[in-house]
Each structure stands twice: as structure tokens, then as C-alpha cells.
Design a protein around this nucleic acid. Sequence first.
RNA 1: UGGGAUGUAGUGUAAUGGUAACACAGCAGAUUCUGGUUCUGCCUUUAGGGGUUCGAAUCCCUUCAUCCCAGCCA
Length: 565
Amino acid sequence: MSIDDEEKKEAKSLNFLERIIEDDLANNRVPNNTIVTRFPPEPNGYLHIGHAKSIILNFSLAAKYHGRCHLRLDDTNPEKEDIEYINAIQNDIKWLGFDWQNHLYHASDYYDQLYSIAVSLIKEGKAYVDSLSAEQVKEYRGTLTTAGKDSPDRSRPIEENLKLFEEMKEGKHPEGSYVLRAKLDMSSPNVNMRDPAIYRIKFAQHPRTADKWCIYPMYDYTHPISDAIEGITHSICTLEFEDHRPVYDWATSIDNIEHAPHQYEFARLNINYTVMSKRRLLHLVKNNLVDGWDDPRMPTIIGLKRRGYSPEAIREFVSRIGVAKVESVVDFSLLEFCVREDLNKRAKRVMAVLDPLKVIITNYPKDKTEYFEVENNPEDESMGKREVPFTREIYIEREDFMENPVKGYFRLFVGNEVRLKSAYYVTCTDIVKDDEGNIVEILCTYDPESKYGTTEDRRKVKGTSHWVSATHGLKATVRLYDKLFITENPGEKTGNYLDDINPESLIINSNCIVEPSLQDVQSGEYLQFIRNGYFVPDSVEFNRDNLIFNRTVTLRDSWAKQKNK
RNA sequence: UGGGAUGUAGUGUAAUGGUAACACAGCAGAUUCUGGUUCUGCCUUUAGGGGUUCGAAUCCCUUCAUCCCAGCCA
């Protein structure tokens, strides 16, 4: 690292979590000076870009301070969790580029310990079995502005609590008949402290422990103890858990451990024009409003991957949005900026005509094929060149021709000369229309002196079009994705986010003509269709005989803006 | 007078008592075999009021606004 780089790194300001960590480190509050963080998803859905923020935050913090980051699947509610999600979560984290090494844990790993801690809590009179119904518990809890009152069972004798809890575990009581509650403070202004339930009865199959248990510990009880067991030093979660911190601190103090973990909260990621809650995403999937969790319009990690986003772009995005405690909504355009920035450096340029218009070059020999070398990436010479066949009949983009050119238009029109990328200059001479007056093809002449796209006289040709040989080009299907929602904050007006779904979020164009080299692209290869945008072969449906591409993002288009003025 | 948190350009994030800044977005222009990229410039900011101080985004008081909490969800 150069001195300049070091200075830059030095100068970079710390976020509030880094400050806390550096302060803890400096004051010897961290065992072995080893920072331990964790990413604790509940396996009840696929990970989305909001989780990416948390993943990147936790793993990067650990890496920066030479500590470690655990992956812990928070599987305390068997009704909602599924092995499909457990596997998908791991794949997504790996794809993002992070490694938990041998630190993969599950909350369910701790069920035995959690149970025996609960028993000792009962023995110390700090927890009791309550027979109140869910409705009654709610009543007794009071409201935000009025204190709660004690359940009649709060004073149940310890022996009886012990016996009942044992029976709950053995499946002798139906769901809803009893819960184990921590004895905290029914009059606390913080409703989370009013004797929270810590165990409930559920006769559900658990994805990992099957039917071994029929009582399951609650998040508020499980999470802090799991953190303590794993030696987590900094337990980072989102803002809505701030009110739970007193419960967290209570649970981590049960065993009087020397270095209890601490919880810190940051603002979750929101992006405009999308929804981010698992509940809503699940709804979109279940109701076939999208084609699954990996639909390229979804903000899921797997959706973004299929859309053609690179992990690097996502990581850059997260590092640019920063981390703070303010509720915020990040512009979708920043995400787009980050993919474009990354893909501009690495995407292989190819020529693909999305909306073909035939061009006949009348003075070019009928059976001739010339091969032109075209650079694969003007940003990176090391990516080399490829040969593209050129013939008398080619296709160009319908948008690249105008019968009656508007002001500022410098593409093809009758009498105008443009360059065909890396090939020849052509001048439009005539338009051929069908009986209904639709333009079916246009006629051009070419200048043989302009071979490879330049001439001796260096005359100015403002427009450059991409093209594909009509005889060598291949048919392809292109899926043009756009925002899933048409409003910045879906549902803000009507109260229902589904009202704001963009009916044109997917346009399928199956009559595209692409250059022959596209038959050989690899799955996952990043492409730029010159002048059209960034594309990837679809990871599920693409093959040599079925060329299907997904548009990741368009190129910036200052002409479109100018046109619309 | 329930409790907890948060207010810095349109958006996000810095500045931690000492010149309010960076990025995205937007707007101009230059360059360009992608109307892309790159480069240059412009635009717009401390929620309001009071106080402490030589000096306040920062400390104090106060008002306002926004978000979260009354699951046997996480």
C-alpha cells in the first residue's frame, strides 16, 4: 500500500459502530481483543439486499478488526422456517463473497442449554408458567400508556412451575395452554419488559430438530443467550430492536458472565421503488406476481444475481450508503450507478439488435463476407478482440433510423452518413415500405475507403450504429426488466403496495438478432450490448440453442433525456 | 408529561467546539468509433426558537417533525 493510500485510509471517517469497537478495544473491554460479530437470519425466506447490508456490515467489521463473524440461523419458530431457506441463505452469503469458516451455528443447537437455563430461572423464582390465554395475556399487559397487572399465575409456587414446564416439554399440554414467562416488571413503561413469554408450546416439525421438541424458546430469550454462548462481542441488529435491549441485557446477565455481549442497532436499508419486507416479497412470490424468489425484478440476492448484478457492485453499494441510526431511503439510482460502474470495467462488449430494421447495402457484393476485428472492451485492452462477420444485408436498431429526423438527431436518415461500428460508413439512399406504409427495409451505399470505421480524409461522422449481419446473426430473446413498482414508496397513496406494481416491469422481446459469438457465452458472463445496456445470459434458461438474455440495467442515456424535453 | 430513538443539499453519508464536505441525482460544457465511458464546471444544506462561548451542526433549554413498541413472530 502506498503512503497516499494509507493516508486516505487514515483519513476515512469511522462509522458509529467502528467508533464503539475502537473504544472498546482501546479500553480492554474485548476478550482476547477479538471482535466477534454474527449474521443471524431467520430461515423463513430468501435474503434480500437489506440483508446484504447486515451481512457486509458484520463480516467487514470482523475482518477490519481481525476478528470473526459467525453465521447463525435463528430457527426458533418451526412454523415459519424451512430447509430450502437454510440452504439458500448459505449460498447467497457465499456468492456475496463472505466466509463464516467453521462458525456455522443454529439457535436450535442451543435448545438443551436454553432449556436448562429456563429451569434454573424457574428455580430462582425468575420465571413462571402462565395459564392465561393469549387474549388474557394481552389484557393483563396493559397498554402503551397504562401499566400492566400481574397474572394470577405470577405467584405460582416454584415446584409447581417446575412440574408444569416439564409437562409442557413432554407434550402433555396443548398449544396455547401454557407459556413460560420471565418475571420482570409488569409496570415497566417499556412493554417488552412486562413479563415477556420465553417459551411456547408448538407441535410443529422443526427443519432441524424434527419432533424432538414441542416447546420452543422465543427470540428475546434465545438471541442474547446464543450470542453469549458463542462469545459474540458486538451484536448488531436493526433499529426496531432498540426497545428489546433491556430484555437482551437481562438475558445476558443471567449467568453473570464476565464479558457480556452488547446489542447495537442501526437503520435497516430502504430503497425507493421497491419493497423489502419478507412478508411482502413472499406475497409476490406466492401470488405469482413475479416468477419466484429469483425473479430478476426481486430485490433478493438471488434475484439480483439472476438479473446480472455482480457481488462487487452490491458490496460497493453497501459501502457507499454507509451505516447510521437515521431511518433513510436510498435512491435506487445509486444501486444502478454501482452496477454500471462495475460492469463498465468488466463487461464484454457485443453487438445485439433488439428491435431489428433491415439495411441493404446496395453497392456491396452479394455473396461476400468480411470479418472485422472488434475490441471486447475499450476500457480494458487485455480483454482482446473478436471477429464479427459483415455482409450486404444487416440489421440495425429501428431507433437508429428516422424518416423525419427530429432536431439533434444524428443517426441514420435519407442522405445522412453514419458509421457502422468497426466496419464502414454508410449513407442512406432510400426507404422501402409495404402496402400499409410501414418501413420494411432501408437502402444504403457504403464507402469502401472507410473500412474499419475511419477514412483518410478524417471527415466527421457523428453517428455510430451497432449492427448484426442478417445472414450470420442469431435469433435471441431478450428480457427487458424495469422497476417492479412505479412509485417511490409503493402503497403510500392507496395503502396497498400492490396497487403500484409496474405493469411494464418485464418486456419480453423474442425477435432480437445478435452477433454469432453470443452462442458461446458462459453462464454468468457479464455482457454489454453496445448502446443498449448490460445483459447476462439467463442462468436458468439460456443454452446454445435458446439464447435468452436478461437486461441488468440500461446504459445512461442522455439522448433519451434530451428527446423528452 | 407512556417509553425508546432520530432530525445536515432532492437522496445518502462526513465534519465529534475552530473555513459545512463527499458521493449519487439534476443542470451545463469538453472529449469520444457506444448520445456509453472519461474530464470540467454549476446547483442546492445544519428542523424552529432561545441560551452558553471569542467561536456551535456539535454543548444546554425549549418547541416541532418523523420512526419504533402493547405476538404465545423475528
